[in-house]
Each structure stands twice: as structure tokens, then as C-alpha cells.
Design a protein around this nucleic acid. Structure first.
Lengths: 167, 167
DNA sequence: TTAAACTTTCAAAAATAATTGAAAGTTTAT
DNA sequence: ATAAACTTTCAATTATTTTTGAAAGTTTAA
């Protein structure tokens, strides 16, 4: 397999995986590209390599930086900005987990709490609803807590998590 | 808060959460609705409650059944089909995890393996690419294995996983 | 201060995904 | 075998999301 071909296949696959997980395809592709690039890339490089517009590149790079998984770099004597990906995979996983927890899980938990406790009605149906949403609340909360604990440790987090839970 | 209002809020929230995780909104809403319904619902019920077409209901119910998290039920003397959600949350999580692993992670792993080992070229760039994709492969594989182990246990899976890993 | 080099913004366009609804298909009862 | 009751399919439509590209904004150098 040609290097170029392999790189393209990787970038496409990572992009498709991103889509399936609610992440914009281009965003995932830029990330993929930066993951396998030894040297930081400029916006031009990225536009060129992925065949995308300047606006698209700009917006998605910004989104990746907001997630804290892509960094801006400056090169000696160069005016333009360069970008690199967070390449420590544990760190990457932690950042993504934390961000998704903050943006999606926490708000959902808030709503679950509200609806599970906020209904006065005492019909069988309403009681069942409260029961189920409460269970869901507890479950999601538990899951989120595990993620939170796990991300307190950077290296070998699972082992360390186990240690703490066992003591 | 009115029961109806709360139910609606829950269904909408669950639907939005689904979208953010790459799951069709209606699919997530149907699932949400069934989660809080004590009695099985018919396709009519679902169409009515979510204000969606018959085709939409049919396709998304089928998808939920393919995921193994919604079941068909038959009622005494009734001709039409009724549906219920898997309400055991551990079981639900396991099914979702397994299905996503099978559909998305496993195929991605295959590609990662291919591209990380398939490039002959010996340039610095190509070597770096192979290195990075290999690391990614190992990481995703490790993560997928943890999920796999975790889902071997239905109840209190984490504790049991720990036991096994500790021995 | 000016202008070149570069980045961001955002309305419009394009691409993608979800939804509809009616026809075709299936099952059940008689 | 027929028809009523119900479900599925899928081409066309609609809604949503992404992308473009040019104008506006920013920074740097001289």
C-alpha cells in the first residue's frame, strides 16, 4: 500500500467514525490528519490535504481547540499559525470524556432530576414515570461518576481507579 | 409540573441526547417513550404520542429491535403488535456497547491494523504514520477489550471485572 | 499609518439525513 | 379464497447540517 493511500484511508475512516459518534466529519478528519503528522500543519496544509475551504478549516480547527485536543503552534520566522494534535492517547480520551460529560451528560442529568421529582400527579402512570426516570438518573449519574473518577488519573487510569475503589 | 409536560420534556431531551451520539432522534424518542410506559405501546400509540408518520415509526421501531433493546409483544385478542423497551439498564448498556463495538469499533480496528502495517515506504513521514496508527490501534483495541470484558457480566459488572483483573 | 499576510465570520448554497405517505406486502379470520 | 387489519417499503419531499467563499476583521512589519 502506498503511504498516501494509507493516510487517506485512515483519514476517511476516522472521519466516518466521527460522524457515527456525533462529531462533524471534517473535524474528525482534521484531527486524524494532525495525529499522523510529525510536523505541525498550517491551515493551508490542511485545506490542501483535505480539499476543503478556508472557512471550513478555520471553524473546525477552532472547534478542535475548544475541545482542547488540538494546539496552536508558532514557527520561527513564519507568520502563519500551525497546528498539532494532542498525541497522548490517554490525555485525548480524558479530554473527550470530560468535554462530553460537561456538554451533554450533565445537562441531561439535570433534566432527568427535574422530571423524576417534579410531577405531583399520583396516577399509576405518573408514578411509573417517576420511578423509571429516577432509575435512569441514578444510572447515568453512576456512569458519569465512573468517567469522572477515571479521568482523575492520567496514566494507567484503570488500574489506579481499581486501587482506589478497592481500598 | 404536569405529567404530560414532564414526559414530553424527557422524550425531547432523550431524543436530543441521541442525536449528539449519532442516533436518529426519533429512534431515541421512541425508546424514551417506551422506557417510561408501563404498558406496551402499539405503533398507533407511538405515532400519536410523537406525532410521526407510520413509515417513520415502523422503520425506527425496527431499528430498535435490531439493536435488541425493544421487543415485540402480543396482547390477548389484539391483532396488532405492541412494543416494550428493555428496562434493565445494565442490560441496555451492554446491548448498546456490544452493538456499537460490532458495527463501528471492530471495522475501524481492521482498517487501523491494515494501514499501520501495510505501508512499505521507509521515509520519516511514513514511519511516523505507522507508529501513530499502531499506537491508535493498540489503544482502541485495549478500550474495546475492556468493554467486551465488562459486558460479559450482567450484574454489577464493574466489581466483577475488577475481580477478574485482580486475580 | 499603510498595506500585506493571514484568520474569522456568516449568509447562501450544497450535501446529507430524516420523514412522509401511499402502494405493496403480509397475516389472520371467516 | 377473500377481505379486513395491519406492517413494510421506498421514491419523493422536507428538514437539518455542513460547506463554501467573499467580505470583514486582525496582526505584523516597515
Amino acid at each position: 500500500m502506498e503511504f498516501k493511500e494509507a493516510k487517506n484511508k485512515f483519514v476517511q475512516t476516522w472521519g466516518a467514525l466521527g460522524s457515527q459518534w456525533g462529531i462533524n466529519k471534517t473535524m474528525a478528519q482534521i484531527h486524524a490528519l494532525l495525529m499522523v503528522s510529525k510536523e505541525p500543519l498550517s491551515m493551508e496544509d490542511i485545506m490542501e490535504e483535505l480539499q476543503i475551504s478556508r472557512g471550513n478549516a478555520s471553524m473546525n480547527i477552532r472547534a478542535l481547540m475548544d475541545w482542547g485536543i488540538v494546539y496552536k503552534e508558532f514557527k520561527q520566522g513564519e507568520r502563519k499559525e500551525f497546528f498539532t494534535a494532542e498525541k497522548d492517547l490517554d490525555e485525548l480520551a480524558i479530554k473527550i470524556a470530560k468535554e462530553r460529560s460537561k456538554r451533554e451528560i450533565k445537562p441531561a442529568l439535570k433534566v432527568l432530576k427535574e422530571v423524576s421529582t417534579g410531577v405531583e400527579e399520583k396516577s399509576t402512570e405518573a408514578k411509573y414515570f417517576a420511578e423509571q426516570t429516577d432509575k435512569l438518573y441514578e444510572f447515568v449519574l453512576k456512569t458519569d461518576n465512573i468517567i469522572e473518577k477515571a479521568t482523575e488519573y492520567k496514566d494507567n487510569w484503570l488500574t489506579k481507579l481499581l486501587m482506589k475503589m478497592m481500598k
